[in-house]
Nucleic acid binder design. Sequence first.
DNA 1: GTCTATACCAAGATAGAC
DNA 2: GTCTATCTTGGTATAGAC
Lengths: 190, 190
Amino acid sequence: MATRGPYAKGVAKREEILSKALEVIARQGYRKTSTRELAAAVGLSEAGLLHYFGSKEKLFEAVLRARDEADTARLGDELDVIDKLGAVVRHNADVPGLVQLYSTFSTEAGDPQHGAHEYFVERYQRLRAALAASVRARQADGTMSTAADPEKIATLLIAVSDGLQIQSQYRLDAEPADVLDHLVELLGAG
Amino acid sequence: MATRGPYAKGVAKREEILSKALEVIARQGYRKTSTRELAAAVGLSEAGLLHYFGSKEKLFEAVLRARDEADTARLGDELDVIDKLGAVVRHNADVPGLVQLYSTFSTEAGDPQHGAHEYFVERYQRLRAALAASVRARQADGTMSTAADPEKIATLLIAVSDGLQIQSQYRLDAEPADVLDHLVELLGAG
DNA sequence: GTCTATACCAAGATAGAC
DNA sequence: GTCTATCTTGGTATAGAC
């Protein structure tokens, strides 16, 4: 039962699929992207496509992981986590299809049976911990109110960022990132 | 060509469908609830069920409208809109199926082609206007910081409430309503 | 009691997941 | 190819306005 791992060709194809999937989804949204269409776009049969990821759910989970990695690579280590969150929200405004993928997927994976449920559980835990640490650091150097509860503010910041992405799909006048900035600014006083 | 309006029988059936739909969704989630199953639960064929609502999307839109009305009826006119939002978030914690329906639906209806898109556009506009008015009222009687921008805070409060419902599906320690309360409390200072 | 919109069903077209 | 899902087509039966 020696497990052999992916061949170089498979790794390359995997990456091609992810980047193509991102492109197609960004153009036409998540719900309208079928595995059939995606398969055609990368020159594979449906079975061939699913061979790499096992299921549609896992494929989209991989797309989101790739996006997280791209965000991390793009933003570097200059900003603290709260500022990064703002930068990502700002950047996302230019990629509506991806926003829809993230929103739809994070919502439907709320079902513990969903293939990507654990991915989001871990992602949210990691994000909350990092944001809470950033809140504490800001409180220590006096740039955030000490009345704020770090854990609750961490949860709040994620909620704001998720919720703004949903609202932004419905003729929202304000820029989502500006609303988030306003919150951080108000939390700085006091 | 005179349009005759629904018969008494139809009105009753419509209500039965809405309440049964809520029940079924609460038990097994939104995505796993098919029109076939729903039709069986109310003793109709699929075509008979769709006769009332036209499409699955419109049916679930009707469920959400009914929930909004129930919330309004239950809460009365004692509370101002911000407090009502908190009360609804608190109440929703007891109806997990509804939370999933609302989250999933509000997300996938982000597509302008979606049957319920206009419903959410109007709902968000109405909510934002009401919340902004409440912010201004609080600023006038000194219970909210005048540094807060009423429009942005209105958008923010909705985002928080939507985002918390998503996060609550992923092993969130804090009570969503407590996080919202914490925000309102912090906005009161200053 | 007539008439027609409403209430409902059987079968199938279409399309996506796998 | 198979299975499952939404929704359409083309009907019959009945409620209830006149």
